[in-house]
Amino acid sequence: MSWLEEDVTTLAICWRVERRDGVGLGLTAHDRDLVIEGNVYRAAPGMTPSAIRRGDASAADTMDVTGALTSGAITEADLVAGRWDGARVAVFAVDWTDTANRVPLGGGTIGAVETANGGFTAELRGPGAALDAAGCETTSAECRADLGDPRCRVAMAGRCRIVRVTAADEEVLTVDSAEPVANGWGGGRLRWLDGANSGMEEVIAASSGTEVMLAAIPRFAVAADDRAELVEGCDKSIATCAARFANAANFRGEPYLPGIDLLTRYGAS
């Protein structure tokens, strides 16, 4: 007889959460910690799942999970800053008397997060949520690929650099290394390697010499000597693609396609 069919229930719900920066966390709805395959699943903060809502093949599977905010595990500052956005989640039921007995219940990524009254509620979006994305791309004058991705194919070796912040004024950073070319970091990414923002990424709006302007103010205060990885960017124009990267053959845009303003271009003729 299966352990799920016994008269006395020994079932506990567990969650394995892995953030995009590699941090992993095990949680359980049981009243004490559980050790499963060498990983500790903490009973605090307690996690209370809703029912899993499953639809037909074209609908997204969703679940809400509610828990307490604690300084050691999940903090309000980290949730608001987005550290848990897009984190991968695996949900399973386990026999707490014999953790080798497990039943997978689902998985996905963390979507919308709300905080209130010392607790939080997070939406877990299943694989079916990917069906909500657009089925095809729309035409654009700018390239739709990201620099270095499989469609762009520009080699990124040598286009990343580790720098140290020497000064910070809101979204403007001064670093100890100059850009490789004019506005070389513009459109690229910055990933914090240490400091209060460690593991988080920023979009770079523009750069000039040793100054880097971010698209938004970092979530936490930046201190002098904080290290970051800068990844070169691209303004996604055909001119830059051809002249700077010699990659016009892989340009993913339609710069010469007539737009809706075609008729109005000749109004003065």
Rank of each mutant, 00 (worst) to 15 (best):
M1Q: 03
D7Q: 15
L11I: 05
I13L: 12
I13A: 01
W15V: 08
V17A: 09
L25D: 14
H30N: 08
D31A: 05
L34N: 06
L34W: 15
I36D: 08
N39L: 14
V40L: 06
R54N: 07
R54E: 06
G55A: 00
D56N: 10
S58K: 02
T66L: 09
T66A: 10
S71R: 11
A81D: 02
A81K: 01
D85T: 09
A87C: 15
V89I: 07
A90G: 09
W96S: 03
T97Y: 08
A100G: 07
N101P: 09
R102L: 07
L105N: 02
G107E: 04
G108A: 00
G108D: 03
I110F: 13
T115N: 12
N117I: 14
T121K: 15
T121H: 13
T121C: 09
G126Y: 03
G126W: 01
A129M: 02
A129V: 02
A134W: 15
G135T: 13
C136Q: 12
C143M: 14
R144H: 10
R144S: 15
R144G: 14
L147T: 12
D149E: 11
P150D: 08
R153N: 15
A155Q: 05
M156K: 06
A157E: 04
R159L: 04
R159F: 03
C160Y: 04
R161S: 07
I162Q: 01
V165F: 06
A167F: 03
A168P: 06
D169M: 05
E171W: 14
E171D: 08
V172L: 15
V181N: 06
W185H: 14
W185K: 07
G187C: 10
W192D: 04
S198I: 05
G199P: 00
G199Y: 02
G199N: 02
I204T: 11
A205L: 12
G209Y: 08
T210S: 05
E211P: 03
I217L: 03
R219L: 00
F220D: 10
A223F: 12
A224W: 04
E232K: 06
D235I: 12
S237Y: 10
I238V: 10
I238D: 04
I238S: 05
T240N: 10
A243S: 08
A243L: 00
A246E: 06
A249L: 13
R252K: 11
G253L: 07
E254R: 12
G267A: 14
G267H: 12
S269K: 13
